[in-house]
Amino acid sequence: MVLHCFQVRGSFAVQAGVIFLFLLLMVTSSRADGDIENGQLYLSALSSGGNEAEVESAEDDVWEEEIWGDDWDAPETIADPLEPLNRLFFHFNDKLYYWVLKPVARVYSGFFPEELQIAVRNFFDNLRSPARAVNCLLQMRLRDSSGEVVRFALNSTIGILGIGDFARDALDLRSSKEDFGQTLAFYGAGGIIYINWPILGPSNVRDSVGMVGDAYLHPMFLLDAERELIIAAWTFEKVNYTALTLGDYELFTETALDPYAAVRDAYQQYRNGLIRNQ
């Protein structure tokens, strides 16, 4: 199949170019409308540096009870029948953070300056674009899906393997942040029960399935990379992420009374926010 593509490279390039231009047109025209879809906050005013005049005032909007009430005051909780085991793994992950991850990330920070860490983060994030594009499509979000395709194409090339977010900087085209867990939620799946995985951290049944689903769409998996390479890449990404967020975990858990319960709730709220596309 791949060989065949190369044989007819000329026409393939033309086709790809036409499709890309079509997607670009679709994405840019949708942004020109400036509409807010599904109550989603389009951060179009973000790049303006917070100029007050440009801040969108939605005082005339139809008030949605959801915005003002429920998800602030009484968001749903998740069942946790595995609590004893989850707590054990939470404790394990906590120790793993302080004894291994944090010291390694500190040393890493000494060699990798912040700009490089951001580039590494962008590189790994870019690899998730194909999965995001598919998930947007599965959630009937055609615009966002084409946006992800355009992002992947631009950032992988002009953004040099994804280390720069050219699509965001030049076109104000932002990541959709979609994943398979959110797609399952779109079709009505709940979290079922909370799971605190060893090493992988907080999750639930739905998002664990989602994680596996997204892994199948990861370029490393699609390219049939060695298992060792996948683990190495994952570890590298994890260390890099820890280096970028050093101190956040400590601050959160140290100002919580039952860190396990606080993390469980934060995960739940965070995921629900993503599912609602807020």
Partner: peptide
């Protein structure tokens, strides 16, 4: 930097 994106009253 802090940026302001939307206000609802």
């Amino acid at each position: 930097k802090v940026i302001y994106t939307k206000k609802l009253v």
